[in-house]
Design a protein around this nucleic acid. Structure first.
Length: 921
RNA sequence: GCAGAAAUGGUGGAAUGGUAGACACGACAGACUUAAAAUCUGUUGAGGCGGAAGCCUCGUGCGGGUUCAAGUCCCGCUUUCUGUACCA
């Protein structure tokens, strides 16, 4: 019988479905193992061959763990809220839910064909009311919580109110938007509205007026991780800075814990490093500069406290509140003009130009250490959102300050001995300090490091400021002026936000007649009929961002049908956390930060049992496309083969990779591809047309998209799975090239032939030593490889082992059975088929993972024999703990060594303490 | 600029400090076939010696170093990819 993948795969996929073998239930008699894929956003284009890479890897691991005796949870779902569906809805008027549903159906169909062992009974969709009820619920908990820095955890807002009523802000150590001083008496006298406004200063989900990334084209604000190089990640539209009232999550309160938690995780160093950079911890000092002839003080943050004597001017961010307060009447016109100019620049323009610009406010500050007067300027190179929005400028030792000083002709005072600042600044944080003596402090002669410590100490003693740790990580902007997202369970009374009652959850997304903003510029929900509470109070018009739904989905999989809790206690206690998480690095600064934050918050409230959600994380690489080109001779319809193209003036044109095989163009298919190529002429080499190629992103416009359905149809799911793993290391980016797939396809056919022989063998005949050696070597190799995610070498090991087995000319059922057990995670369909042909009931997913026996693997001890210049040199492995003489004696008396010694005395013996003896004969 | 990863045949890629190039593709040659496809066998890093079995030299981006032994470890470069950036 021929190997018929279609027949085998259809049959066993049906069997798995009918017998529900992948269903996971709590079973306290077995250890749990939770394998999770980052769930996909179901786009309209469907899956291409690059998408399943990570899913195949996690599927292999999940099956392997199950065979090792673990109770495996391996779920899948959809991140269903998102911009593309909404944009499509705006264009077509079709409800995003309709397109999302259709896309999900298509995804499911494609996924099913590959034979994954997902427990689909646990599927979640972020746009399901039964799911987003818990997203809304989590938001409510955050609204009702504040972060206590003393206890380092989130606490109920009622406890904060009690504190304020009893002692005001005294003794309060909380994460907050700004420093407030309120006495108990003041608090108790406050009307309800004012109290609620004040509490926003501490809530973990709070409303704040801050500078945000506004994308006019998308008509919404965006979080920092949704903006890259000044344009939106989705769509690539320009983004500008705007001051707006928004919902935010106080992620910054968790900055230190998010940093510390990384130490406990088995993630790659590069990913941890990316998160560390994003969190951006910097230690420094916050200090105040008095403003001349004024009661005002400017607060700044610096990491270089040692350079205060070199501060020759100060700079405010254009958005800083100090700007209005400080600007003198003479300078007001110039400052206003500058602010206007800055406002009109988009973020992208600001970044690309990098032109030095700024304006003098007319005010002077006093350098607290030197006592000198220094001018205060405004410039857009200072960011409003970081630190205090004001800086002390040290032009001699900071390149931005240096450029600014040179442009506006401000003084530059070097502070490090020997530093030449006539051409450029000296940025290195080393050297001996000079020019740093004032009435109260002298730093001359100290190193930079000593200088920083000394100054920090002085600042605290002299009450000029305090030592402070700053983080780059900002609070996450949580409102989106869009339709297709979770509605906020919030209404407004007296213009102050109130939470709805929990019984109102889920607050379902209403229908709207159009998905565009309203005429008055309100979000699309402004068009919804009856979008108010029964009492007539208006409901929030913004919806939540994409990361809201994906932040706790891993918890929901543990207990997806629970209507009373996000996750039940019993389910959470059993499944605990994700043991293995697989997905792309693109989520490093978005989802993976927010999700960790969200989980830590729930942990603080005692709702989940683990502080970190994803213990081990593996990033699969991107699969790129491999595009093919034909070369058209200019102004003709003649195409010249790759090798001859330099002799002509040609234009390369992308050609569909599906009509090219091994870079050879199918001429007839090409003529039929497009009407304009119907009469194409070709200049061939050796009778063939060779196409050029390039590695590019896989996309429709490059005609290099390969669809997994086509591969499954032609070669089978097992072949697809093996080939995706065989392509190269999982973590590495690599181009897809269908050409190599014949190799694994042949392997499965050979296996099928071998199995036919083995199945016909006498069941009583024991396996030969050669067979046992081949199979046990395989088990050992694959066991180690799977643990290390080295799936490509596993696939190679299968090929080698099969080659060795066929070379023995024997084929026993015993060898086949062991082979099938280790192959099962990689190629489940053919393994299931052979497992049953071997006479087993049940599924191969429950076949025990075999162990190997070292006795079958023993080899000669003589290794690496080399001969050179008439000498022979070989190495003998010996036990590590024996003394040199013993090792040498044992090595020379070894029978295998005798062959190489050939009766002669060795000329030189090198004993390497530990394990190796080199003998030169 | 900063951070991380990487560089090995025509191609994708293997190598706990121990015979570099496993495995696969492609290519070449052969078998089967009227022929093609499929399948099978052999060769395939470069250069050289030999009738042959076989043997020698050189070879893992570049330059140094450690070691009996380096693709692997250390120092200094070059290039590529990824992330990030007026973060004071």
């Amino acid at each position: 019988m021929e190997y018929n993948h279609k027949d085998i795969e259809a049959r066993w996929q049906q069997f798995w479905k009918d017998s529900q073998v992948y269903r996971a239930e709590i079973d306290k008699s077995r250890p749990k193992f939770y394998v999770l894929d980052m769930f996909p956003y179901p786009s309209g284009a469907g899956l291409h061959v690059g998408h399943p890479l990570g899913y195949i890897a996690s599927d292999i691991f999940a099956r392997y763990k199950r065979q090792k005796g673990f109770n495996v949870l391996h779920p899948m779902g959809y991140d269903a809220y998102g911009l593309p569906a909404e944009q499509y809805a705006i264009q077509t008027g079709q409800h995003p839910e309709v397109t999302t549903r259709a896309n999900i159906a298509r995804y499911r169909e494609q996924l099913d064909k590959i034979g994954f062992c997902y427990d689909w009974s646990r599927e979640v969709r972020t746009c399901d009311p039964g799911y987003y009820k818990w997203t809304q619920w989590a938001f409510m908990q955050m609204f009702n919580s504040w972060y206590d820095r003393s206890q380092n955890k989130a606490r109920p807002i009622s406890e904060l109110e009690a504190h304020l009523a009893a002692r005001g802000t005294e003794g309060l150590n909380a994460a907050q938007s700004k420093e407030l001083h309120i006495t108990a008496a003041e608090w108790n006298a406050m009307p309800e509205k004012e109290r609620r406004q004040a509490l926003m200063n501490w809530r973990i989900a709070y409303q704040g007026n801050s500078v945000v990334n506004w994308c006019p084209k998308l008509g919404t604000v965006l979080a920092n991780d949704e903006v890259s190089e000044g344009v939106s990640v989705r769509g690539g539209y320009p983004v500008e800075q705007r001051q707006m009232t928004q919902w935010l999550l106080r992620v910054s309160a968790y900055a230190q814990r998010l940093l510390d938690g990384l130490e406990t995780l088995e993630w790659t160093d590069s990913l941890k490093e990316t998160q560390r950079n994003w969190i951006g911890r910097s230690e420094g000092a916050e200090m105040r500069f008095k403003v001349k002839d004024s009661d005002l003080e400017l607060e700044i943050f610096t990491t270089r406290a040692d350079t205060v004597f070199g501060v020759t001017f100060m700079v405010l961010a254009p958005e800083s509140k100090y700007v209005q307060q400080l600007t003198t009447p003479e300078q007001r016109e110039a400052v206003e003009a500058y602010l206007e100019q800055v406002r009109h620049k988009t973020e992208r323009e600001r970044q690309i130009e990098k032109k030095v610009s700024g304006v003098f406010t007319g005010a002077y500050a006093i350098n607290p250490l030197s006592g000198k007067e220094i001018p205060v300027w405004v410039s857009d190179y200072v960011l409003a959102g970081y630190g205090t929005g004001a800086i002390m400028a040290v032009p001699a030792h900071d390149s931005r300050d240096y450029a600014f000083a040179r442009h506006f002709n401000l003084p530059v005072v070097p502070l490090i001995e020997g530093a030449d600042v006539s051409e450029e600044c000296f940025e290195a944080k080393e050297g001996i300090i000079c020019n740093s003596e004032g009435p109260t402090l002298n730093l001359n002669g100290l190193t930079v490091k000593e200088g920083i410590a000394r100054t920090k100490q002085f600042i605290e003693e002299a009450r000029l400021g305090k030592v402070k740790v700053n983080y780059r990580l900002r609070d996450a902007i949580f409102s989106r002026q869009r339709y297709w997202g979770e509605p906020f369970p919030v209404y407004y009374k007296d213009e102050v936000p109130y939470l709805m009652d929990e019984s109102a959850l889920p607050l379902e997304l209403p229908e709207v007649p159009s998905y565009l903003p309203t005429e008055s510029g309100e979000p699309p929900l402004g068009r919804a009929q009856g979008w108010h509470t029964p009492d007539g109070f208006p409901i929030e018009l913004c919806t939540m961002p994409g990361f809201a739904g994906s932040s706790a989905y891993y918890l929901r999989y543990m207990d997806p049908h629970n209507n009373d809790a996000l996750v039940g206690r019993e389910a959470n206690d059993y499944w605990q956390d994700v043991d293995l998480y697989i997905g792309g690095t693109e989520h490093a600064t978005g989802h993976l930060i927010y999700s960790r934050f969200w989980n830590k918050f729930l942990f603080d409230l005692g709702l989940v049992c683990r502080d970190e959600p994803y213990r081990r994380l593996v990033n699969q690489g991107m699969i790129q496309g491999r595009s093919n080109f034909v070369y058209r001779i200019k102004d003709t319809n003649t195409f010249v083969s790759r090798g001859l193209k330099d002799q002509h003036d040609v234009t390369p044109i992308h050609v569909d990779v599906n009509i090219v095989s091994n870079d050879r163009l199918d001429l007839e298919a090409f003529r039929a591809w497009r009407p304009e190529y119907k009469d194409a002429e070709f200049i061939l080499e050796d009778g063939e047309y060779l196409c050029g190629y390039a590695v590019e992103k896989m996309s429709k416009s490059m005609f290099n998209v390969v669809n997994p359905d086509d591969i499954v149809e032609r070669y089978g799911a097992d072949t697809l799975r093996l080939y995706e793993m065989f392509l190269g290391p999982l973590e590495q980016s690599k181009p897809w090239d269908t050409n190599g797939i014949d190799g694994v396809s042949r392997f499965l056919k050979k296996l099928w032939n071998y199995a036919e022989k083995a199945l016909a063998d006498d069941p009583q005949r024991p396996a030969t030593p050669e067979e046992l050696k081949a199979v046990h070597k395989l088990i050992k190799k694959v066991s180690a490889d799977v643990e290390n995610f080295s799936f490509n070498t596993s696939v190679a090991a299968f090929m080698v082992a099969l080659g060795e087995l066929t070379a023995t000319k024997k084929a026993s059922r015993h060898a086949l059975e062991l082979f099938v057990r280790v192959l099962a995670p990689f190629a489940p369909h053919i393994s299931e088929e052979l497992w049953h042909q071997l006479g087993h009931e049940g599924s191969v997913v429950d076949a025990e993972w075999p162990s190997w026996n070292e006795d079958y693997l023993k080899e000669s001890v003589v290794k690496y024999p080399v001969s050179f210049n008439g000498k022979v040199r070989f190495t003998i492995e010996q036990p590590a703990d024996a003394p040199r003489e013993v090792v040498q004696e044992a090595a020379l008396s070894n029978p295998a060594a005798a062959k190489w010694l050939d009766g002669k005395e060795p000329r030189k013996i090198i004993v390497v303490p530990g394990k190796i003896v080199n003998v030169v004969v």
